[in-house]
């Protein structure tokens, strides 16, 4: 069957991209960024000591 006309293909591609971005890429990147942020803070805490009064 001839379902792979350019319109159909690009539409499918879009939906796929959307799903990959929403469900995989951004979540993983979020974890990486948040984790990375946490890691950096941790390293800074090792150098400058544990967190002080935050009030």
């Amino acid at each position: 069957m001839e379902s792979t006309n350019p319109q159909e293909q690009s539409k499918r591609s879009e939906w796929l991209s959307f799903l990959i971005i929403c469900v995989f890429l951004f979540p993983i990147l979020s974890v990486v960024f948040v984790g990375g942020y946490g890691f950096i803070v941790w390293m800074l805490q090792l150098i400058y000591g544990p967190p002080g009064h935050s009030i």
Binding site: V34, G35, Y37, G38, F39, V41, W42, Q45, S54
Partner: peptide, 9 residues
């Protein structure tokens, strides 16, 4: 923030 840092730790 400190919680996340602790999680990495």
């Amino acid at each position: 923030t400190d919680k996340i840092a602790r999680k990495m730790q």
